[in-house]
């Protein structure tokens, strides 16, 4: 409801309800009703004095309730939880978002398999160029990282 000046009108009953709901502080009322309520309360203070007094007593009591301090241990825990959670859930950007999560492990596995296959496939060529089987074996063992094929043979015999 609005008056001719386009200012909202608040009934006396509504002002009592506002006091009982939000207390004695007009700034706690819904913004749209603050101005009209303040004007009406200034016009007829006697109408609202009792409600305001009761509300003020309760407001004073509520104001005694202290704010809750966050203990340092809790603050530290909250912060410590965050980076891990944030990193595991970090949003992927660009092209990487379309790649599956197992791709890095798959790439490493492929590389290892490729090296092994490469070594095995290249061995017959080495053997073909060797004069004897022993020389071919020596080349193969050297490729695999063993130092001295002859010493290995002697030790085996």
């Amino acid at each position: 409801m609005k008056d001719r000046g386009n200012t909202p009108i608040v009934s006396d009953e509504r002002i009592i309800a506002l006091i009982e709901t939000y207390g004695s502080d007009i700034s706690a009322y819904p913004e749209a009703e603050q101005g009209a309520a303040a004007r009406r309360m200034a016009e007829a203070p006697g109408l609202f004095a009792q409600a305001l007094e009761e509300a003020r007593r309760l407001d004073d009591v509520l104001n005694l309730v202290p704010e809750v301090d966050v203990p340092a241990s809790l603050r530290n825990s909250l912060i410590a939880d965050a980076p891990k959670a944030a990193r595991t859930g970090r949003a992927q950007t660009g092209f990487s978002r379309f790649l599956p999560g197992w791709l890095p492990a798959g790439a490493v596995a492929s590389l290892v398999m490729g090296l092994l296959i490469g070594v095995n496939v290249s061995l017959p060529a080495s053997v073909a160029n060797a004069d004897t089987n022993d020389e071919a074996d020596a080349v193969m063992y050297a490729a695999l990282g063993f130092g001295n094929y002859e010493l290995m043979n002697e030790a085996a015999e």
């Binding site: 704010e67 809750v68 301090d69 966050v70 809790l74 603050r75 909250l78 912060i79 965050a82 980076p83 944030a86 990193r87 859930g89 970090r90 949003a91």
Partner: peptide
């Protein structure tokens, strides 16, 4: 920034909102 793992942004969010949340839950 906090989602990207920035510790100062994480601390900012904790300091700004944990008192209200702890007050409500208490």
């Amino acid at each position: 920034r906090a989602a990207a793992g920035d510790p100062s942004a994480v601390a900012w969010l904790v300091d700004r909102y944990s008192p209200g949340v702890l007050g409500l839950t208490t």
